[in-house]
């Protein structure tokens, strides 16, 4: 059996919302806490710290990920996107945010960042999601306010808006 090991900090180079960071993190620091604490990106919310609510969902290398179930130390070289990356500096909402706004897809807004990031991943790979696709992608994200109906509607509408946008560009 080994002697007790003193945890050493771990160096990570991580890109968050297009900004590169070179950080020393404690091994136990959860990604959610790194984002909310040191990086002051408090848009990512924490609701359960058990992986069950999805409020903390961010994109890690493009994949929707529960940031409460990943240690920052694991993410050397990773690219992370959070809700703060979506809207423009001039206040222009991202089409997914705009769809949530237009379809009343949020009330208190606490679950919303997780929903938006989950929707981002979905809409990267599916242009015209059906409600069941939305449930498949976001079914693990809990919302206590909306009853989900408008969230599903919002994501489907965002898919349509993004498709139009892409076609317009093509």
């Amino acid at each position: 059996m080994s002697e007790v090991v003193t945890p050493e900090k771990v160096r990570i180079r991580i890109t968050v919302n297009d900004t590169a960071h070179d950080l020393l993190v404690e091994p136990r620091t959860l990604l959610a806490d790194l984002l909310r604490g040191e990086l002051e990106l408090t848009g990512t919310h924490v609701g359960c710290e058990q992986g069950v609510c999805g409020a903390c969902t961010v994109l890690v290398d493009g994949a929707a990920t529960r940031s409460c179930l990943v240690f920052a130390a694991q993410l050397d070289g990773a690219t992370v996107r959070t809700v703060e990356s979506l809207a423009g500096a001039d206040g222009t909402l991202h089409p997914i945010q705009q769809a949530f706004h237009e379809n009343h897809g949020l009330q208190c807004g606490f679950c919303t960042p997780g929903m938006l990031m989950g929707a981002c991943e979905l809409l990267e790979r599916t242009t015209a999601p059906e409600p069941d696709d939305v449930r498949e992608a976001l079914g693990g994200n809990l919302c206590r306010c909306t009853g989900y109906q408008n969230i599903v509607k919002s994501v489907c509408a965002a898919g349509a808006a993004l498709a139009t946008e892409r076609n317009g560009q093509a």
Binding site: P7, P27, R28, L30
Partner: peptide
């Protein structure tokens, strides 16, 4: 709800 300290190894 936060983990206790540990040493992290990434072989």
């Amino acid at each position: 709800m936060k983990p206790a300290a540990f040493a992290y190894l990434a072989p």
